[in-house]
Design a protein around this nucleic acid. Structure first.
Lengths: 330, 330
DNA sequence: TCTATAAATGTAAGCGGTTAGATTTTTATC
DNA sequence: GATAAAAATCTAACCGCTTACATTTATAGA
């Protein structure tokens, strides 16, 4: 690989001039700049990012932490979609994406150590339990950090309108005449679950159906558990509608209902959440709350990069809207 | 951030000694080594990967190219699952994963330039059209490169048993009594499609049902197109079975069949491919060919890293087996 | 033509590590 | 106690780039 030294030698100038010419500084005579740029191209010159980063203290790369308690990572469709959008946005802004892990060349280190080691300009935390002390440390110590669907005063928090989502859900069901509603929500220690439950309960109160609603703790994107819970519900008597924590769970539940001869939506209505592809592919297609994963990824990335480039490291919250997708299950 | 200079000063030794101590060289007295390691820890020292890479010419990072013609990226579940496994394996071996793009800090560059710029130790190409001259250049010029489901003499090619997969498919259908079979395959310019088609046709010949089989070009993971094609098939008369290019397409096809009152598998049997989660979640559950994404990711990553660490840059092919998953659609 | 000023270029240090080879210290041997 | 060999440590250069500051060259004004 040619270096700026090679170019400098060939052109009979100093490396300073080469560096400046290639970086488009305006204190290089136009003619020499052109000459050097052409020469660099000729020689197949490509800068070395390590050297550049070392000298400028800027890495042009972002770390992504995507580690839930169950290690599902990219297997979680919603987050795979979000990461995809993050990756595209970052790339458009000239940054690249690297996955954060606890393992480095030889040993196991904390996320914070990893970030310091790689010198990421910023970090995005997605689908990760921020109560993990390791993650907490990261959020508290790193300057430029953004979270998805979390709340932390030190981070740019891009959140889906979770309460609103449940409000929409409940109003939709209520308007269709479903009043006895069971909500199979996600894990209780999860921020999103808490928000959605709060939204659900508040709306239920408002609609005066609070006594007809039930809550069962399930697990996000775990159709098997949703299946089992649904089975119990069938045994104990069906409500008017079942709201699942997400589309995968709703699919698992639907499977169970069908297998037990329960007609959807005649015998019971169901709803999912997320609006990922599967919602429209199963039959009957799911009524669900769609989260705009492209938008989420874009907003979180743009905001993080803006904050990096403007040296603003204060945290704030952005809420993104969700939309109702009406399918055949309600 | 503390540097080895800080440590050296505090400990009254040279940076050489610090560097050696922290890297566990055995020409440092045990007592000083311990002292320095403790001190480093005390001072919260974390090496700087840029400096380290610059000096050692090793980046401990891999690039991943995941760009299909339609830019679906991580939205493609099969590949999201594979990338997830790659990421975990890489991390276990002390490497990290960065997405390759055509955009760098300021301008648009070729993949090769990107790789040279970042100094990846190796590159993994997944779900990417290697006929793209840009990709071709990459494969030809980079030393340590691995592909998934591609063939190139310069790369470690980890391929699924595509021909075998279709053989299993066809035997399964044949044994169940289905003989008039329509195969809605993926894009013809795709290596995987070519392999599978070849496997299909050869087996059909062998089973002596070649004249009863039909082939229609569809598009991978595009349920809408599968839906439309299925509709036409219904109009033109159903075969005994339809084989789709993948589970998403099969889901789209199934949706169409159901909507038109066609009973599966009574009126027509269908099969998917990949064995991703959706296959088991829809009703009836899909009979499909399962690809072990964990294994694929693991094998491709381990092989690439081995080749990097042993300085072996020759290409070879590894075929990984697929398995039949029998669902309710056959 | 001679300055003063602006423009262009160069010198050298620094970013944070590694490492060949030199030097010093320790240990073993007689 | 002197000496050779081994062990421990240090000096200094290097990886490839950036940049503050110094120096040279060009330009304009008197």
């Amino acid at each position: 690989m040619a270096t700026i030294y090679d170019i400098a030698k060939r052109a009979n100038v100093s490396t300073t001039t080469v560096s400046r010419a290639l970086n488009n500084h305006n204190d290089v005579k136009l003619s020499t700049r052109k000459r050097l740029v052409r020469l660099a191209e000729e020689m197949g010159y490509q800068p070395n990012s390590k050297a550049k980063s070392l000298a400028t203290r800027k890495s042009w790369s972002l770390g992504v932490l995507l580690i839930d308690d169950h290690d599902s990572g990219l297997n979680h469709t919603l987050f795979a979609n979000i990461i995809d959008s993050i990756s595209k946005t970052a790339s458009r802004r000239g940054y690249e994406l690297t996955f954060l892990s606890k393992t480095l060349a030889d040993s196991t280190v904390s996320y914070l150590q990893h970030v310091n080691y790689r010198g990421f300009d910023g970090v995005i935390i997605a689908n990760t339990n921020i109560n993990d002390p390791n993650v907490k440390e990261l959020i508290e110590k790193v300057n430029y950090i953004a979270c998805i669907d979390q709340i932390h005063s030190n981070a740019i928090c891009v959140n889906s309108q979770n309460e609103e989502g449940m409000k929409i859900t409940l109003y939709h069901l209520f308007n269709k005449g479903y009043k006895r509603i069971t909500y199979i929500h996600g894990q209780l220690n999860n921020y999103v679950t808490q928000e959605r439950l709060a939204g659900f309960k508040e709306t239920a109160k408002h609609l005066n159906i609070e006594n007809e609603c039930k809550y069962i703790e399930g697990k996000y994107t775990c159709p098997e558990i949703a299946y089992d819970i649904t089975k119990k519900i069938i045994e104990n008597g069906l409500p008017d509608a079942i709201v699942y924590s997400d589309d995968y769970c709703a699919s698992g539940g639907l499977k169970c209902l069908k297998e037990h001869g329960v007609k959807v939506p005649e015998d019971v209505a169901i709803m999912g959440y997320d609006g990922v592809e599967i919602a429209s592919l199963i039959t009957p297609s799911l009524t669900t709350i769609h989260q705009d994963t492209d938008k989420i990824g874009e907003v979180v990335t743009e905001n993080l990069i803006d904050s990096i480039e403007n040296n603003r490291s204060n945290g704030y919250i952005i809420e993104l809207p969700v939309t109702l997708v009406i399918g055949e299950t309600t």
